[in-house]
């Protein structure tokens, strides 16, 4: 149980996908302008990370590894995740239109996002069991959510402040992102010692 908590917390804080591993930067910079779109995007990411792990972990363990096809991991995962997200979109559109509307355009957008692929591949590389892999995916999704919400706050402050002309737009956004990611460095070593 403690191991699961450690996996969850370290996925959220220490190995934060956006701010420590630098995966999924595209949506991080692209959709973080407003709080509501940032939340929508992050919820879609959590959702897709969970279902992607739930499908790719068994594929790797029961289909690829026993047949010595482990090297097909990347291409098979991309294929499966892309098809899966399409399928989920169709199902949601039919049965849960309200959720489909709120996830909206973000669902197909993150189909081939590197953060999603990264989670599924790292789950295998770390040698997690199925439950651990699911917990890690949840933590990674929550970490993405945290980073997005925090950064949308930072960006709304930037928008209202007087920035030197040469820094306006993307430059100041990137600087702000790097300072935000610095703050996450402070978590290093904290979680392991929480339960020691």
């Amino acid at each position: 149980m403690i191991k699961l908590i450690i996996i969850l917390l370290s996925a959220v804080f220490i190995n934060n996908y956006v701010l420590s591993r630098f995966l999924g930067i595209c949506p991080f910079l692209g959709v973080s302008k407003k709080l509501d779109s940032a939340t929508g995007m992050s919820l879609a990411v959590i959702f897709v990370m969970l279902i992607a792990t739930a499908v790719t972990w068994p594929i790797q363990m029961y289909l690829l590894n026993p047949n010595g096809l482990g090297y097909l991991q990347t291409i098979v995962f991309i294929l499966v995740i892309a098809a899966l997200v399409q399928l989920v979109e169709i199902v949601l559109k039919r049965y849960v239109p309200s959720l489909h509307k709120s996830l909206g355009v973000y669902l197909p957008l993150i189909t081939t996002n590197c953060a999603v692929l990264g989670v599924t591949i790292l789950n295998i590389d770390e040698g997690y069991t199925f439950v651990e892999a699911m917990v890690n995916s949840l933590g990674s999704g929550l970490g993405f959510f945290l980073a997005m919400v925090m950064f949308s706050g930072v960006r709304s402050t930037i928008e209202g402040s007087d920035i030197p002309k040469s820094f306006q737009g993307l430059p100041i956004t990137l600087i702000a992102a790097s300072i935000t990611s610095l703050s996450f460095l402070g978590f290093g070593g904290v979680i392991e010692n929480l339960f020691a």
Partner: peptide, 13 residues
């Protein structure tokens, strides 16, 4: 295997 997985995915979709 990749082709088979692709075909299965396509059929399901």
């Amino acid at each position: 295997p990749v082709v088979i997985i692709g075909i299965i995915c396509a059929a399901v979709l």
